[in-house]
Design a protein around this nucleic acid. Sequence first.
DNA 1: GAGACTTCACCACTGTGTGGAAGGATGGCC
DNA 2: GGCCATCCTTCCACACAGTGGTGAAGTCTC
Lengths: 259, 259
Amino acid sequence: MAEAGKAAEPAKAATSMRSLERAIDVLEVLDASHHALRLTEIARRAGLAVATTQRILGVLEARGRVERDANGYRPGVGLIFGAHAYLTSSPLLTAARPVLQDLASATGLTASLFKRLGWSRVVLARVAGDSPLRYELPIGERLPLHLGAGKALAAHMDPAELDEFLAQLDDHTLADGTTLDRDDFLAELKLIRERGYSQARGEREPGMASVAAPVVDADGTATAAVQVTGAQADIPTERIPELGLELQRAALAIARRAY
Amino acid sequence: MAEAGKAAEPAKAATSMRSLERAIDVLEVLDASHHALRLTEIARRAGLAVATTQRILGVLEARGRVERDANGYRPGVGLIFGAHAYLTSSPLLTAARPVLQDLASATGLTASLFKRLGWSRVVLARVAGDSPLRYELPIGERLPLHLGAGKALAAHMDPAELDEFLAQLDDHTLADGTTLDRDDFLAELKLIRERGYSQARGEREPGMASVAAPVVDADGTATAAVQVTGAQADIPTERIPELGLELQRAALAIARRAY
DNA sequence: GAGACTTCACCACTGTGTGGAAGGATGGCC
DNA sequence: GGCCATCCTTCCACACAGTGGTGAAGTCTC
């Protein structure tokens, strides 16, 4: 059991602390759905007995981690604190913020930092370049690892992990419709590793382009990456090597301050 | 036992699901501290046995809700999802966003929405007046209920609750150093209730002023509030009644759409 | 290199968390 | 208006998950 259906996570370790584990499952079900869910539905998705699910939700609600109305349960305000605490206490982020600022003003593009989590990446910070509008809270958004700047992270997975990753990716397609060819993909990752930065044009969002470099931590693993994005017109091919270099510098600066 | 030391929460209900309850305690300890904590310290603050605490932290770490390095444990990236899910799925927020936008451009001030949680309030959304919104670290910030716009919420607590609130407030002081006088405070709350909006000048932040109105939900309780803030010079006393009216309109608009 | 501090692994006991089933509540349909 | 289908809630007895003491292994300080 325990299969959430998304298959978006690396293997789940068996552990003691069943109830806690299950509570987190419930929370993840809620986080994944974009609208309110009814008790029965949550129980089904989490693979739990209804009574158990209800008990868990009860506690979570009492603690403000979950809210409910006539339509069912939704994530609750209490969750905000955790995020706020993370955003203010993470050394990675405090290190990255000024660097992103510099990157954005130096290049005129939008600079962002994201971090790997499971088989996806999360946007942790973003600084818009000059183009003022960039409405909304991309922070916390979950993006794929195999598209756009995600490749900078995929390129630095160790082989075993990469296999596992590709295995669960098989049925994905790029935004323009083309299917992902395994060999091409591996070749590109190799190139990224050699060059030290990744680039993408219209992969995740049509008309957009991006360049990204991995931030390697003390262990030498790449769990985060810096990125600049802009309209394809603003990132002509000949500008890419220069941007790549600048991103590597930025990544290094972040790593040095954070770890 | 169970006393976290902060006394910042209303009475904790006794419950089944001990382990989950304790896990949340641990998370709250981490959320409250602005730097990494060691295992022993967390155990102490949460009032738990070290072994227990370690088991909990182990699970949380495996699930990305907690991170750790040589200095101890910190909140983890996983927490971001919850917040993102809340910010995108909350009907209150989707209802409020456009209203805040309007408020900000109509008044030229900064408009924000916050919600009550325990004995404090949390900033949920903020739209800066003229300058297009920079990204919002303030989101998730925890502010007092008895200062500035918090009074709009305090004014609508029921008497029993208000008593409890005042009891745990006794040793607080205003930003300018003056102590809170209970009778004055109650009188002000009464005025706020009658007028429908609250105002403050230099209470929480010197030189700043604010006007706020409560958003009442379906049950008639005020759990959220809208607010505009600006320099004292931008909010002269004669402008306040007009602003108050506008805020009440905004609050009503939000309530209608959200509930 | 001794001392003080951590964190970690182990294990026997007991009380917590479990899930099935039965009782209410609600809503849609004929 | 009555019937059926869903969903939510409450209750209970059992099993096993969670507990916390203890001692070993690790790490930093002076």
